[in-house]
Computed example of a mutant assay.
Amino acid sequence: MEFVQQVKVFVSVVDLGSFAKAADALSMTRPSVTNAINALESSIGARLLHRTTRRSSLTGEGEIFYEKAMQLLSEVAETKNLFGGSGDSPHGRLRIDIPVAVASTIIIPQLPEFQRRYPSIEVILGVSDQPTDLIADGVDCVLRIGGNSPPTMVSRLVAHIPMVFCASPEYLANYGTPKNIEDLSEHHAVTYFSGRGRRRMEWNIFEDGKERIVHMRSSMLVNDTAAYVDCAMAGMGLIQVAGVYVEDRLKSGALIEVLPDRQHVTLPLSVLYPNRQHLSPAVRAFVDWTVEIFRAKTSRWIRVS
């Protein structure tokens, strides 16, 4: 069996977790899969998999080889499609991490369509606003709102997300409604922080056509977007949050927009992944699909260039 096919079998075993499942997925017999892995290990001179009766797992050498194998298969697929030919459908595990603000509102409701389009991709979904080390955590790509991308990451802009000031009706009834920027100093804020260093999210607002930072008195520090909004709904203070996440609450009156006549500050929503040169077909499919669905969702709270 040729080397590339052996690599394909190896990747399938890793992605599916067993020789039997890989055999079914590839329409091969179990002995053929075993022979392919044995031949591959013999040709490269390293043991790639720990075998048990029910599962297989990567050795240290196998982890290194798996990354190279994914790169190889990606390049093979790209070469096969160089002149428009039809290559294999993207497959395997796709580990993604997305922010809370767009998880329940945009991404998750659309995931069934992604799975129908790419049935051979198994999505491993993480929902978090906290910084992620893609390499150390084994994540293929992340969506992030705001912030600068590390120099080792490739960043693709997906959309701009307008931020909104808001508070609960109860809070505004108790403390009054701010009419201008100066009034904000008289109010309490729920403050969002992230990372081990507890970095606080600054409040930004436009004044005289320029963006400036507003320093607020903090009543509570929170590191989760859902809890952040819940604190505001409980009347604990003002918040500045992605409008797309609280759109329904604003419509229902559960939250009230503050300073609605002010120009909204927008933050970039970007998808980040480690290396464009070896972008796997599954990651490429997810990145392109993400850009597509956000373009279709363009609204007051989602702006696409």
Rank of each mutant, 00 (worst) to 15 (best):
E2C: 03
E2M: 05
F3Q: 10
F3E: 05
V4Q: 11
V4E: 07
Q5M: 09
L16V: 03
A20K: 09
A22N: 08
D24H: 09
D24W: 05
L26G: 02
S27Q: 12
T29L: 05
T29I: 05
V33N: 02
T34Y: 10
N35W: 07
L40F: 08
L40D: 00
S43V: 10
S43F: 06
A46I: 02
A46T: 07
R47L: 10
R47A: 11
R47H: 12
L48T: 01
H50G: 02
R51E: 08
R51A: 03
T52S: 13
T53Y: 12
R54T: 07
S56L: 08
S56F: 04
S56I: 10
T59M: 04
G60Q: 12
Y66W: 13
Y66P: 07
A69S: 15
M70W: 07
E78N: 14
T79M: 12
L82F: 10
L82Y: 06
F83Q: 13
G84K: 11
S86R: 11
G87P: 11
L94Y: 03
I96W: 00
V100W: 06
A101F: 08
S104E: 14
T105F: 02
I106S: 04
I108H: 04
Q110I: 01
F114E: 03
Q115R: 15
Q115A: 13
R116H: 09
R116S: 14
P119Q: 05
I121D: 00
E122Q: 11
V123L: 10
V123S: 00
V127N: 00
D129C: 05
Q130N: 12
T132P: 00
I135S: 12
A136W: 08
A136C: 03
A136S: 13
D137S: 14
D140T: 14
D140V: 11
L143S: 02
G146P: 01
G147C: 05
N148K: 11
T152G: 05
M153T: 04
V154T: 13
H160E: 07
A167M: 03
S168H: 03
P169A: 06
E170C: 05
G176V: 03
N180W: 10
E182W: 03
H187G: 00
V190Y: 02
V190Q: 07
R198V: 13
R199L: 14
R199M: 11
R200S: 15
R200K: 15
M201H: 12
M201W: 08
E202W: 03
W203R: 06
N204H: 12
D208Q: 11
D208I: 10
K210F: 11
K210L: 14
V214N: 05
M216Q: 06
L221C: 08
V222N: 05
N223D: 15
D224S: 10
D224K: 10
T225V: 08
T225L: 06
D230I: 06
A234Q: 15
G235A: 08
I239N: 01
I239F: 09
V241Y: 01
V241E: 04
G243Y: 02
V244L: 12
Y245E: 01
K251C: 13
S252N: 09
G253K: 09
G253R: 09
A254P: 01
I256T: 15
L259R: 12
R262Y: 14
V265I: 13
V265E: 03
T266Y: 03
L267T: 04
S270K: 12
V271K: 06
P281K: 07
V283A: 06
A285C: 09
V287D: 01
D288K: 15
D288V: 13
W289Q: 06
T290L: 10
F294N: 00
K297D: 09
K297S: 15
S299D: 13
W301T: 00
